[in-house]
Structures are given as C-alpha cells and as structure tokens.
C-alpha cells in the first residue's frame, strides 16, 4: 500500500510544493531548478507519446487479430501507419537527398494534409444546416444569441463595409457594431469565464497536491 499509493501521493505533494515555492523565488538557482525539471518533463513526455502510439497501434492490431466488428477498416490504419514508419525509417537509415522522392514526406503531403484539412471543413455544412433548422428567436435570450451571431457574421466579412457605406453612409458602421459586441459583452463574458476557469484550476491543483484528487493513480489499490 505504501509503495503503490502513499509514496506516489508524497511525491505529488513534494514536487508540487517545490514547483509552487520556486516560482516565487527570484534567485537564479530557482530558475535553474525550474528549467531542469522542465527538461525532465519533456523527456518523460517523449516516452508518454511513445505510449500513445503503441496503445493506438495495439488497439487496431487486436481488432484485426480478433476480427472484431469493422476490423477491415483497421487494416487501412495498419497499412497507413506501417507504410509511414517504413518510409520514415528508410529515409533515416539510407538518407533522402533533396532530389530524391521522399515517400514519407509524400504520404504526409498527399494523404495526411488533405484528409486532416477536409475532415474539419465538413463541419461548415453541418453548422450551416443546423443554424438553418434550429436558430430561432423564440424568446429574449434566443433573440440576443441570434442577433449577436448575425451581426458578427456580417460584420466580419468585407462586404459589410460596402453595405455600411451604402446604407449608413459610413463604411465602418456595421464593423463598429460587431467590434462593440466583441469588445464589451463578449469580453465581459470571456473574462468572467476566465476567472471561473482560473479559480477552478487552482482548486483542482490544490486538491491534487493534497491527495484529495487521485484519479490519475488509476483504479484498483
């Protein structure tokens, strides 16, 4: 029990207290300590990333091996990953000059980039469709939401300046309204949320330091 639970909690408290205290000490040694600890965390983070890659690979290999539902699609994950690793390792060992065709780079440029860029752009259609179907000024609050959205959407595209000049004889008229929304009510709310988030993060950190919050230890004992 001591090794599995008490000692990790003691480490959290000790290292957390050191991090906290050293932040207030303007001595160069404190700065060195912070810098050294940050280096440690970066190295440990590298191992953590390896763990992430391994876990994801393992999950898909297990799905293929056990022929679980949709295992055929996992084959494509496997092909993609192995293909990239093989070309990457080849490039590292043999070396790829600027004139050679780097298949690792090619896979990134023509598979990862277009797929990554497209998958999020699909949301443009969903957002538009959802706005059309559900955005209704049914009450005061919904009306404010709708009004602010419409003004900001319009006030952030160049055409609003032409319309402003034509209707109000001031090209910046609509832009100024959009700016006012962003600079006052939006700012007020975001600041309120920041204060709330900040207080919550501090409370959570204190809970972690004092061992009240210990879900990071995992289950069991």
């Amino acid at each position: 029990m001591f090794l599995k639970r008490t000692l990790p909690l003691l480490i959290v408290f000790t290292i957390g207290s050191l991090a906290f205290v050293h932040d207030f000490i303007p001595h160069p040694l404190s700065g060195e300590f912070r810098s050294e600890m940050a280096s440690w965390m970066m190295i440990i983070g590298g191992f953590g990333m390896f763990l992430g890659v391994y876990s994801l690979m393992h999950m898909h290999i297990t799905r293929i091996r056990q022929k679980m539902a949709g295992w055929g699609y996992s084959v494509f994950v496997f092909i993609g990953a192995v293909g990239m690793i093989a070309t990457g390792v080849y490039g590292d060992i043999v070396g790829v000059s600027k004139d050679d065709i780097d298949l690792f780079d090619w896979g990134y440029k023509y598979i990862q980039v277009p797929c990554g860029a497209t998958i999020f752009s699909i949301l443009a259609f969903f957002v538009a469709s959802a706005a059309f179907r559900t955005f209704r000024a049914k009450n005061m609050a919904a009306g404010l939401l709708l009004g602010a959205a419409v003004i900001v959407m319009f006030g952030r595209v160049p055409i609003c300046e032409a319309v402003g000049g034509w209707v109000f004889n001031d090209r910046q008229a609509i832009v100024n309204v959009a700016n006012a929304i962003m600079n006052y009510p939006n700012l007020a709310v975001k600041r309120g949320l920041l204060l709330g988030i900040g207080l919550a993060a501090i409370a959570q950190s204190v809970r972690v330091l004092f061992g009240v919050e210990r879900t990071y230890l995992g289950g069991a004992d």
């Binding site: 990333m49 390896f50 990953a81």
Partner: peptide
C-alpha cells in the same frame, strides 16, 4: 478516414523518435 488515422499515427511515431 482510417487510412488518415494510420498515416497520422505513422507520422507521429516517426516524430516521437526524430523530434523527441
């Protein structure tokens, strides 16, 4: 989608090594 996940995973694996 799955090919994308695989390629991204392979890219990540290589950069965990190359850059970390």
């Amino acid at each position: 989608e799955n090919l994308y996940v695989g390629v991204a995973l392979g890219y990540m694996a290589m950069f965990v090594w190359r850059q970390a």
